[in-house]
């Protein structure tokens, strides 16, 4: 984070009051460079929570149900995939540099594709994604089922916000 580009580069994307508070609050150049993440930190904490949530839940389901219940395998595998995507996206949002910026675009695009595809399929053919009815945990389906209804629809809103944020930071990377 310390090697993040200078805050000036993203000037067009910064609300005036945020720029003013950032300028007023600069203690050291180091702190100033860190502050360039700004509102993105809110995005990052939401991604981090989803990453931890989806991964630990998939891990628990894998350990508890994967072997015994063949019908649970697809939902568990999809939950695991979404968990990994959220982990990589979180890291890519935090890490500086052009390469990570690209990784962030790829993972967040995949995430949007995933939530739209799985969300639609889970409504059209619920039986495939529902998992065994006697396993309420897995029967909830994956993080992406019904566009993330089990996670307050955050999974379908988040990639859009992520893309908007990445777009607002484009100037950093085309100039770099």
């Amino acid at each position: 984070m310390s090697s993040a580009p200078q805050p000036e580069n993203r000037a067009p994307a910064v609300p005036p009051e945020a720029a003013a508070s950032a300028a007023a609050a600069t203690a050291t150049p180091h702190a100033r460079a860190r502050r360039s993440l700004g509102a993105g930190r809110v995005l990052i904490i939401v991604y981090a929570i989803l990453a931890i949530g989806a991964t630990s839940r998939a891990g628990y389901q894998f350990a508890a149900f994967f072997g015994q219940y063949p019908a649970a395998r697809l939902p568990i595998a999809l939950s695991a995939v979404s968990g990994v995507i959220y982990i990589v996206a979180t890291i890519a949002l935090v890490a500086p540099g052009r390469a990570w910026y690209r990784v962030a675009w790829v993972t967040i695009s995949f995430e949007l594709l995933g939530v739209l595809t799985i969300g639609t399929l889970s409504i059209l053919i619920p039986a495939v994604f529902a998992g065994p009815a006697n396993l309420p945990d897995v029967a909830d389906g994956t993080v992406w089922s019904t566009y993330g209804i089990g996670y307050l629809f955050i999974p379908v809103v988040l990639p859009v916000l992520g893309m908007l944020w990445l777009r607002s930071r484009r100037a950093h990377y085309s100039a770099a």
């Binding site: 950032a22 609050a25 700004g38 930190r41």
Partner: peptide, 8 residues
């Protein structure tokens, strides 16, 4: 990082 976004 003591700015408004940390409060959020």
């Amino acid at each position: 990082e003591r700015d408004r976004w940390s409060t959020v």
